[in-house]
Design a binder for these strands. Structure first.
Length: 302
DNA sequence: AAGAGATGCAACCGCGACCAA
DNA sequence: CTTGGTCGCGGTTGCATCTCT
């Protein structure tokens, strides 16, 4: 079974776009817009392309004011911070970087930025199976981590630890890197230890028990998710559970940054419990605060 | 110089969300 | 409420180019 294809695959051209196709699509959209229907668009202009392919080409390449390559350090910082906090929500990360596309950022992260920030441990890992961060880009093909933490979660935790140690690094000094929750730190150390211990399966708690988590301090900020990219700090308590996404963070002593709360677990039955947190960042020319929410089904943000 | 492996990036695929009928 | 069509996203793949031996 499965869903009906969005187009007649047999009569649709695939692969790289020619200059003629680019010009045709660009001209049409600039003159008429997309018409609100990408699927019908290629037929209107007589192109043998799938509507989705047209949309992708327009969004990632032909759209005006797009930047390609040449990511600045500030952009690196933003990408890294957002990735740590919300994971691979590339469209949201892209929304913070004018002129950048989600695809561009995703590629940049996977191919360069991750390595730049984490470095590589190729030599150290010779002879033992690699996990998570280093592994999945030494090959193109990814495999699930052997222990309970998903690659994404472990990667983000590793980044956290790494970046905290880099706080004095001039390259990164403009960022206020969020702090790890003690529970996260414990998990990460366990995971890393596990990695060193010849990849034995790590036993993680099935669920974060309430007593394992420190109670949120009185200065906890709870924000309700609103629409995408909209930040709304709501002073009233937010219902936890009931399927709603939630967010928690608390100001540090100086009040200049938010302590990041994030717990992502994968239980033995494969259910993910993921709570990403919030942080703030300030740099010379901008100051912004950011809150993120993530639920096990990946729904809902900000 | 040449072959193999690594890398970077554009594009594709499939799925869930959303919305109108 | 259900159904069907489209959109948008994130993961993955294919291939050209680069780097290493």
């Amino acid at each position: 079974m499965g869903r009906a294809p969005c187009c007649d695959k047999a009569n649709v051209k695939k692969g790289p776009w020619s200059a003629e196709e680019d010009a045709k699509l660009k001209d049409y959209i600039e003159q008429h817009g997309t018409g609100g229907n990408w699927i019908a668009l290629p037929q209107k202009i007589g192109m043998k392309r799938c509507g989705k392919s047209c949309r992708l080409r327009w969004l990632n390449y032909l759209r005006p004011n797009l930047k390609h390559g040449g990511f600045s350090e500030e952009e690196d910082n933003i990408i890294c911070s957002l990735y740590i906090s919300i994971g691979s929500r590339w469209s949201i990360i892209a929304a913070q970087l004018p002129g950048r596309t989600d695809n561009d950022i995703k590629n940049y992260w996977n191919t360069r930025l991750k390595k730049k920030l984490l470095g590589r441990r190729k030599q150290q890992q010779q002879g033992s199976p690699a996990t998570s961060v280093e592994h999945d880009h030494q090959n193109h093909h990814q495999s699930p981590s052997s222990h309970g933490l998903s690659n994404s979660a472990l990667e983000r935790l590793q980044l956290h630890m790494k970046l905290q140690t880099l706080n004095q690094n001039p390259l990164l000094h403009t960022m206020l890197w969020p702090k790890l929750h003690p529970f996260q730190e414990k998990l990460l150390l366990q995971a890393m230890n596990d990695e060193n211990n010849n990849n034995q399966s790590m036993q993680l708690p099935l669920l974060p028990q309430p007593e394992m988590m420190e109670s949120p301090p009185s200065n906890t900020i709870i924000a309700k998710p609103t629409t995408t990219n909209e930040i709304n700090v709501d002073p009233s308590p937010f219902q936890l559970g009931g399927g709603d996404d939630f967010i928690m963070g608390n100001l540090d002593n100086s009040g200049s940054s938010l302590v990041w709360w994030s717990n992502e677990f994968e239980t033995s039955n494969g259910v993910n419990y993921d709570r990403s947190g919030s942080f703030s960042s300030s740099s010379n020319d901008s100051s912004w605060e950011y809150c993120a929410v993530r639920s096990s089904d990946g729904a809902g943000l900000f």
